[in-house]
Design a protein around this nucleic acid. Structure first.
Lengths: 221, 221
DNA sequence: CTATCATTCAATTATTCCATTGAATGACGA
DNA sequence: TCGTCATTCAATGGAATAATTGAATGATAG
């Protein structure tokens, strides 16, 4: 290792962390790992990527201190190293939302962010739930739901949304959430429900943010 | 541009932001810009880098929404685009401090972080200042001091620290701060003062963090 | 001990990023 | 209008990073 002054050496370390976050696939991996720990194979399957590719990206994330690994039999389970990883992700997302016009364009174009797409905040949701005014649905796959979900939520994976909608209580508003603030599944769930004439809105954030806020989490028995 | 789904498109945008933070030189540029706006030339001089190189990195930072440019005559002044940039930087620093053993090693090795190097916190400083128990010195160059400093601080650029120490009030503890939590100048100032037998400690954070916390800032007349 | 399977490593090619150089742009002052 | 100066652009070669493939490792089950 070359001799440098400590300032540069520190900046190099910080840059390693930022660089680890600087790839779209790795960010997607982080969002999945934020739902709970995963084996390399499971993660690869979720993302539709070759195992070796995911393994390499996991090494990069590990070098940056983003994830930690734990061996369990012949599986290695990866998970986020620290809650501070989520705040770093959130901070980067915040910069992008505030500063990059492209983000705004994507959100408006693809997600069709109309005024009435205004998401429900955490406090607002808790008030609505207390008053029994909403049906809260968790549109993530069943395995992620099982690892932890908002108390009172029903698991309705995205592909079952149309079938489920028939049994929905038309008198209540539906609130959907999934993996994070920009997770597409809740957008699509809301769009699908609305096209069926149901009143639906997104929860502003997803499961990891709910958990990070210290709010109660329910797990499968 | 290829057609992708919105999720990937968003992750790509977030990755652009993270990638912009993923280079040591750019992080150093951010720390300088956090002191105040700078022209390309001024920044290049501060960092001892060719102008064209700095210009290119500034473009990268601009693409990532990290900095914004403002033309003034034939100069272009760059500054941080948003206070959220500082929190993103802080979040990344936080991950590095918590997770990367190398950071710990550098801090211990170069900065000689002994127990009594424990830095002074903001509240503690304010209490000490109120009671007149400390001399607060700002060890940044005079131009950065002029753009804003902690009220009551004396500007003692690092290279003048030995000359100044003769006139220091030996009955008071000295607290030094500079550009940020890991800015080397305050470490070196404290080391120099201690080797002269004076009681000196670092302020935990630097000017940008002080400003971001909404605390009062004094600028040159 | 051997077979199996999850994971990692190694090697390849394509792509992107980086620093440097020199030329182009764009605004100001004479 | 012309020269000057700050900044940006374009082009170069060299280094790092990414995706793919196939082989190596390391732990479990039989």
């Amino acid at each position: 290792m070359s001799i440098r002054n400590p300032k540069q050496a520190l900046y190099e370390q910080f840059a390693i962390v930022a660089k680890a976050l600087g790839h779209p696939l790795r960010l997607e991996m982080i969002e999945h790992l934020a739902q709970g720990s995963r084996s390399v194979e499971a993660l690869a399957a979720k993302l539709g990527q070759p195992v070796a590719n995911i393994s390499q990206h996991l090494q990069a994330l590990r070098r940056g201190g983003i994830v930690s690994a734990e061996r369990d039999g012949k599986f290695v389970h990866y998970s986020l190293a620290d809650a501070s990883v989520l705040s770093a992700f959130a901070a980067i997302r915040g910069v992008a939302e505030r500063q990059l016009a492209e983000v705004d364009r994507i959100v408006r174009g693809y997600f069709d962010a109309r005024d009435d797409m205004r998401p429900v905040g955490r406090e607002e949701l808790q008030a609505l739930m207390r008053d029994g005014l909403v049906t809260l649905i968790d549109v993530r796959p069943a395995d992620e739901f099982a690892l932890g979900h908002v108390p009172g939520a029903i698991n309705v994976p995205l592909r079952e949304i149309n079938a489920w909608s028939g049994s929905a209580d038309a008198g209540k508003q539906i609130v959907a959430y999934c993996r994070g603030p920009w997770c597409v599944m809740s957008f699509e769930a809301v769009a699908a429900l609305r096209s069926l004439g149901l009143a639906a809105r997104r929860l502003e954030e997803g499961m990891p943010e709910w958990r990070a806020a210290g709010l109660p989490v329910e797990a499968a028995a």
